[in-house]
Design a protein around this nucleic acid. Structure first.
Lengths: 240, 240
DNA sequence: TCAAAAGTGTTGCGCATACACCCATGG
DNA sequence: CCATGGGTGTATGCGCAACACTTTTGA
């Protein structure tokens, strides 16, 4: 089992990913629950091989921990306080090592996991319908949580989510990345509800439509008849 | 000599600083020249102690390498390509080790310096008049270079400066950090020339004045009589 | 015919830009 | 009194916000 082969990883440097998804008017974050007696919630993260670019490491970690690939992913901040130590892991060393296929934790040179870590924060945007998160080897479950009601995460991971959300808000319009959260085709109402979930505030319907269309990145398709007793909205697709 | 004590530093992780200064209408960057036969220019950088926050490490490195302290400093990007290896150092190993007080390079376990490094980029803004850069132990000289005509730097350091400048431009107004580049008191013309140097484009005089004053962060002081045959400009001071 | 939701148009405000004009200063 | 540079005021255009109105759909 080479899950944490210390020889090949850069020590005391990690990557943690904030994976945003959107569904039913709610901005969500994917949070694995670590397999321990006391439930531990932690951002999906991992380590960087000594000869691996950090971007590729982030993509690999995401793939390994959640099965997600080919998505929008970007570094946003480095968290490097002197006290970034995984105390929850420290307090559960015995249990943790037992669950790793009976290998003794210390004898396998895994002590480095309890050192202080600098972590590069990445945030990702995924179409929640296209994604079927898989559990990592240490995970008990993986679930989407509303960004407004996350569980208590380990270390400073709640703060990492906060900062990721700030970054998402700053970059949403400029980089036109929001459409990564939507399915292939969508209505203008869906775009608006997405924006309202991200910024946690309402937008005026007419002005919003104008603003988005003025971006000149959407292609108007046929109408979508929902069966509801109202005008059928157009479908749009993101182009370019 | 404990200049590079591998025991206490996080390996394969470094910090590099882009130090901006402003003088005579030019935006400048502080670049040390490394003491080797073949001249090597490199951003002032260093390493992080295993129990040290990255922000404090950046401040310490700046102090050690340039004597500068108590300034505006902020992380802006992580450079983590798989090929970030200091080849210039590799090619000069012998010479480098000789100059380190005759200690043999390899025998002192300094090989780790030639590994691949992930580097956290910081940028700093200083009042160029308040600062008297000192040379680091390995430096032959330390000079201010116009950001538009930098020498060829090692590895991806030129790219690091580019990205720092982009970040500076994005943050200049929002974070009101530009005044860190100016002396205690200054005229509106000086502010405008600073902005023109940073953005590398002209601004309209009247509109610029209005915009800056509308920020509501400047205090108008007495007039400054220059002896020139024209109206004396007001002096301003940054408050808050 | 009506309610619900979608689409579109009009107006006003704030901000940045462009143009214009006065003021102070020393030669 | 004049050239030079500093300070300020006014008109214009654009983007965003607020309000109003029309259109489509199925019950």
């Amino acid at each position: 089992m080479k899950l944490f082969d210390e020889k090949n990883f850069i020590h005391q440097l990690s990557i943690d990913c904030v994976i945003f998804g959107y569904k039913a008017g709610e901005l969500k974050v994917l949070i694995p629950k670590i397999l321990l007696k006391k439930p531990l919630y932690s951002l999906p993260g991992g380590f960087i091989y000594v000869d691996e670019s950090i971007d590729k490491a982030a993509l690999r970690i995401l793939e390994e921990r959640t099965g997600i690939n080919d998505i929008y992913l970007e570094q946003y901040y480095v968290f490097g306080n002197e006290n970034r130590i995984n105390n929850d892991l420290l307090n559960n060393l015995e249990e943790f090592s037992q669950q790793m296929n009976q290998l003794e934790f210390e004898e396998n040179g895994l002590n480095w996991l309890t050192n202080r870590f600098v972590s590069i924060g990445y945030y990702a945007l995924v179409d929640i319908n296209k994604v079927n998160p898989k559990m990592g080897e240490m995970d008990e479950s993986v679930d989407w949580y509303n960004v407004k009601s996350l569980p208590k995460l380990i270390m400073d991971h709640n703060e990492m989510v906060e900062k990721a959300l700030e970054t998402l808000r700053r970059n949403l319009d400029e980089k036109l990345i929001g459409f990564n959260l939507l399915p292939e085709t969508f209505t203008m109402r869906e775009v608006q509800e997405l924006y309202e979930a991200i910024y946690d505030k309402p937008f005026a319907r007419n002005n919003f439509q104008k603003k988005i269309l003025d971006l000149d990145v959407l292609e108007r398709l046929e109408k979508k008849f929902t069966g509801a007793a109202n005008k059928a909205p157009y479908l749009y697709r993101f182009r370019r």
